[in-house]
């Protein structure tokens, strides 16, 4: 083992490193967004970049998401490879036209003649009492609309590889990173997200899920923070003699339905864990992907552990009551067995 193989990074550091490495080899890559310059990004994912690349390529923007995301579309169509940050995914409400009507559709509207190679990074997730406009995930909202790839890493290794892959992709990629995995001390961080990250540049295939824990009794499918909850639940279940498999989706668009179906075909049971709202979203899509393909593989009705269909409450006890957690996943298993 060389020294570099022992190196662990946070997701924030991994994203910044991937961006820096790509900017060194591709002059068309630049970053813009709010507080991504000297501050290094509110969630640390552009830290150190302005010192190396300067304010021309690491551009702090006015608080004008419609303008700078729209500008990224125009720059991408003109041959650049912009990386833009929407500081909180919750802010999509002020700029969604630039995202879903321009970024996501201009390739199609031009019959493929204009490419829109840009990355829209945005923070997701709650759990730290930031209230209902700074805590959402909105995975389903973005993944629902055609024309943009959507990725959501659960750990720093994946974060770096996805970031590099996203910057090299000729289509727009929405890169959703979870605040609670980011490695920012002041937010509280899931320790499992900080893992070994190779120093050299590498890519992770967008659209490929990972079985992060093998099992034979139940498949727990999730993304981002949910993967860590699933892994913790799997440990609890293991102590009870239950073998849980955990699938990390990694990408939401394209969705790797093959890996999900193969896992459920093996275990016969499915629990989906989603920090996004329950209805009309990711959890329903995962279940439909299995049942419409072959419902006979299921030994019992699938379960979902998702955020209830309410705005995210502020009070700590209320928010924690609503969020998915390992206990709820274990309870879902218990209900499944009792049914």
């Amino acid at each position: 083992m060389t020294k570099s193989n022992e190196r662990k990074l946070t997701i924030a550091r991994a994203m910044a490193e991937a961006t820096a490495q790509e900017m060194r080899i591709d002059p068309k890559v630049f970053v813009m967004g709010e507080d991504i310059g000297p501050l290094g990004g509110v969630y640390g994912n552009t830290r150190g970049l302005i010192e190396e690349f300067g304010a021309e390529r690491i551009r702090d923007t006015p608080i004008s998401e419609t303008a700078f995301i729209g500008a990224a579309v125009g720059a991408a169509q003109d041959g650049m490879r912009p990386v833009v940050e929407l500081m909180f995914v919750d802010f999509f409400g002020v700029c969604f036209d630039a995202i879903y009507n321009l970024m996501a559709k201009n390739t199609y509207f031009s019959g493929g003649k204009f490419k829109v190679p840009m990355v829209l990074m945005t923070s997701t997730g709650g759990g730290y009492s930031d209230g209902g406009q700074h805590s959402q995930c909105l995975y389903g909202t973005f993944a629902h609309l055609p024309g943009m790839k959507v990725v959501a890493p659960s750990n720093a290794y994946d974060a770096k590889g996805l970031m590099t892959a996203a910057m090299r992709d000729d289509s727009p990629v929405v890169y959703m990173y979870h605040k609670g995995l980011q490695g920012m001390g002041w937010l509280g961080t899931e320790a499992g997200a900080t893992v070994h990250v190779p120093e050299e540049s590498y890519t992770l295939e967008i659209g490929k899920a990972k079985v992060v824990r093998e099992g034979k009794d139940v498949s727990i499918v999730s993304v981002g923070m949910g993967v860590h909850n699933a892994l913790k639940a799997a440990k609890t279940l293991e102590a009870q003699g239950v073998s849980a498999e955990v699938v990390d989706l990694v990408s939401l668009v394209p969705l790797d339905r093959e890996t999900i179906r193969a896992s459920v075909a093996k275990t016969g049971r499915l629990i989906v864990v989603d920090e996004d709202y329950m209805s009309y979203g990711l959890s329903g899509e995962i279940i439909a992907s299995v049942t419409e393909h072959d419902i006979s593989v299921l030994k019992s009705a699938p379960k979902r552990v998702a955020f209830p269909d309410v705005p995210i409450p502020f009070a700590r006890v209320m928010e924690q009551f609503c969020l998915p957690n390992p206990d709820k996943i274990v309870a879902a298993w218990d209900e499944m067995k009792a049914a």
Partner: peptide
């Protein structure tokens, strides 16, 4: 926005 972005490019 896209026109401004092309100008930036």
């Amino acid at each position: 926005g896209p026109a401004v972005g092309a100008a930036l490019s």
